[in-house]
């Protein structure tokens, strides 16, 4: 059973890799690792620097103080660029085994919150048991965040992996870092997962998932899904505006912290170079 699942998982990963290289070949002209990033890149990479758009909770002074704290923490830990669907390894100090650390490898299935409250969920299947860990990005007990495979998926949340076949969320804990070629765009993995039959944790048929293979649902469920669907909401410009930070404000925020972010990125680059050099060793 174990062997078969691993084989399956390998096959899935293999397909994914082929597709990834393919997609990266298609669009590989933008500069991802440049130190000077445009606004559109900054807001993708440092999403949590944008405040909560809810009007009644906003205050410029609080937001400024929050950003200063975030930058201070980022001076201590390198939090790299990652997306939902990327595979991360998080090393954290373990309060239950003093003096030791805990490393968890998994796929990021959700990113939420902004500012100091930013958090993400990693999922992996360990010993046939699905495990999810929620990490706070600015938790001072995090020691290292590594991106083992930088990629995006077709959906903004991968919570449906909980109801998918386990091989879709199984990742080798000893996985090595896959380095993307310099200057390539973040690849999108067009993998379509197969869901297990009902019962599900959520009504996936109502969520317009793109990364899920066609599944059969009863006529009744379909009818109900159609009934509650709100396809017109994407045309609601006012709602869209209220749920986002306007571009002018984004510019203001990032121009304020741009220099510090650039400095952080430079130090990261230096560290990267240091890390890449591995001293050759004799065999036998």
């Amino acid at each position: 059973m174990l062997v078969s699942t691993i084989r399956h998982f390998k096959a899935v990963n293999y397909h994914a890799r082929i597709l990834r290289t393919f997609s990266s070949q298609i669009k590989g002209q933008s500069s991802r690792s440049d130190t000077s990033k445009s606004l559109s890149e900054l807001r993708n990479v440092y999403v949590e620097f944008l405040p909560d758009p809810t009007v009644e909770f906003r205050n410029p002074i609080r937001e400024k103080l929050e950003r200063l704290d975030m930058l201070a923490r980022r001076g201590q830990i390198d939090i790299p660029e990652f997306y939902v669907g990327s595979i991360l390894a998080v090393t954290a100090s373990d309060p239950h085994s003093l003096g030791k650390t805990n490393r968890f490898v998994g796929i990021c299935i959700k990113r939420e919150g902004c500012g100091l409250r930013a958090k993400f969920i990693l999922r992996n299947v360990i010993d046939h048991q699905g495990v999810e860990v929620l990490y706070e990005m600015y938790d001072p007990a995090l020691q290292k965040v590594e991106v083992l495979r930088l990629e995006k998926r077709l959906d903004d949340k991968l919570l449906y992996l909980r109801d998918a076949l386990p091989e879709y969320s199984t990742f080798d804990p000893d996985m090595e870092i896959e380095v993307l070629p310099e200057g390539s765009r973040v690849p999108v993995n067009p993998l379509k997962v197969i869901l297990k039959p009902k019962p599900w944790l959520e009504r996936w048929e109502r969520q317009n998932l793109r990364g899920v293979q066609e599944f059969e649902i009863s006529e009744r469920d379909k009818r109900r899904a159609d009934k509650v669907a709100t396809p017109w909401l994407k045309y609601d410009l006012m709602k869209n505006y209220m749920n986002t930070i306007p571009e002018e404000e984004q510019n203001e925020i990032f121009s304020e912290i741009h220099e510090q972010l650039q400095q952080l990125e430079l130090t990261r680059k230096k560290l990267k170079r240091k890390r890449s050099f591995v001293k050759p060793f004799k065999l036998g």
């Binding site: 704290d69 975030m70 201590q76 830990i77 309060p95 003093l98 003096g99 001072p140 995090l142």
Partner: peptide
């Protein structure tokens, strides 16, 4: 209180 500019917390005996 932990300061954000302090190094990462390591739980020690």
């Amino acid at each position: 209180l932990h300061r954000f500019s302090d190094p990462t917390i390591v739980f020690q005996k």
